[in-house]
Design a protein around this nucleic acid. Sequence first.
DNA 1: ACCCAGGGTCATA
DNA 2: TATGACCATGGG
Length: 230
Amino acid sequence: METYQALDGRYRSETWHWMPDVARGPIDVIVGAILVQHTLWEYAERALNALHAAGALDIRALATLPPERIEALIRVSGTPRMKARRLRAIADSIEGAGGLDAFFALSDGELRERLLATHGIGPETADAIMLYAAGRPAFVIDAYTRRTFRRLGLGPAEDGYGAWQRFFVEGLQDVASVELFQRYHGHIVLHGKELCRSTPRCVPCPLLPHCSDARSRTGGRDTGLVMGAG
DNA sequence: ACCCAGGGTCATA
DNA sequence: TATGACCATGGG
């Protein structure tokens, strides 16, 4: 919680959405969540723009267009054949649920279950869609979050997705809300690097590339960021 | 010519 | 259950 307060106090004035600009609707978020898998948002956004320009950012289009067409449009985001298949899978799943409205009318549990049953959607992508497209209180655990918090010497004992998620949800239970989960995750993604750099209590860890430049800092300058559990 | 990047699936042991 | 190969492209 103190970590969140530190981040939020510092960056309160800026937008915190992890998908800037293009993700204006739920379909953009759903598609973006798949495109960003194992790559940088920069590339996912390019692919998203290409889909949009081609009029393919639409459930019906994604469910019916030839796979090669989708592949060509999203190539820049990497693993195009895989991601084209995954986009088709989620489009089919949404249509199978009775369309986007019916899909979003599902309960939290039903929605997550349907997402996880979709080929190519695992816990992180499911939670990203839950939180950012459907507005459900699902805390997203991604590589940035794990790296940043491990670097700060925080986090659960075990390393599994569920353990990380419980760590955050339990630490935030008194203040949990969709908006806070979105802001917190966004802050970590956008500012995790600086958080590592500016935190005196950072511990050495050669396994964390984006923080490795802060390795030897122990008496770091005071930036107003103070760490605490959860 | 390396290395990595916000994941997930599948085949092994 | 757990570990590793694989996907494939762009940038440092």
